[in-house]
């Protein structure tokens, strides 16, 4: 019964918080209305969310976000240097295949988005059965190193969060 009325408790909390952030000021009115939205929206859209992804290890989520933000800053500067100071003939772009240990679609989505957000790499495609991710790298002298970086920095942490 409870599961039917509140199919996704975390989504309910998230929607309430997002509503409060949209209002940009705290008041009892907006809290009640946010909670109302948080209860109604998951209930109405429940058929579109069959699974309930389990997140473990909240400490690791915080660590992951910090690592990604740091990598975005570092990689931005690096790509800016490539764009500004390296002639086009010297840019060595690579296609890189990253074999995946992650199985859950949510986890793979987060990994692919992370790869795209960090400048210098764009995730382009998934293999037919979803065991391998195709990544385009703007410039690297060591494509295997880029692949290992992705696996050790991001995938290892996501495995601990999702699987």
């Amino acid at each position: 019964m409870r599961r039917k009325l509140i199919p996704h408790p975390i989504l309910t909390i998230l929607l309430t918080v997002v509503w409060l952030m949209l209002v940009n000021a705290f008041s009892l009115n907006s809290l009640v209305f946010g909670l109302f939205l948080g209860l109604v929206i998951p209930f109405v859209t429940a058929p579109y969310w069959p699974g309930r992804p389990r997140l473990r290890n909240p400490r690791m989520i915080a660590e992951y976000i910090a690592v990604v933000i740091w990598d975005i800053i570092v990689a931005n500067v690096r790509v800016a240097m490539i764009v500004l100071f390296r002639p086009n003939e010297q840019i060595r772009s690579h296609w890189i295949a990253v074999p995946l240990e992650l199985k859950r679609p949510e986890a793979i989505t987060v990994l692919a988005s992370t790869i795209t957000l960090t400048p210098g790499t764009v995730s382009a495609d998934l293999s037919s059965e979803g065991h391998c991710l195709l990544v385009h790298c703007l410039h690297s002298d060591d494509p295997d190193g880029v692949r290992d970086d992705i696996k050790t920095r991001y995938e290892r942490r996501l495995t601990e969060i999702f699987e």
Binding site: W95, A97, S127, S128, E129, H131, L134
Partner: peptide, 13 residues
């Protein structure tokens, strides 16, 4: 032109 999609047979797109 692409690396092989191991362990699967091909890239989706």
């Amino acid at each position: 032109d692409l690396p092989p999609a191991e362990p699967d047979s091909h890239w989706a797109h």
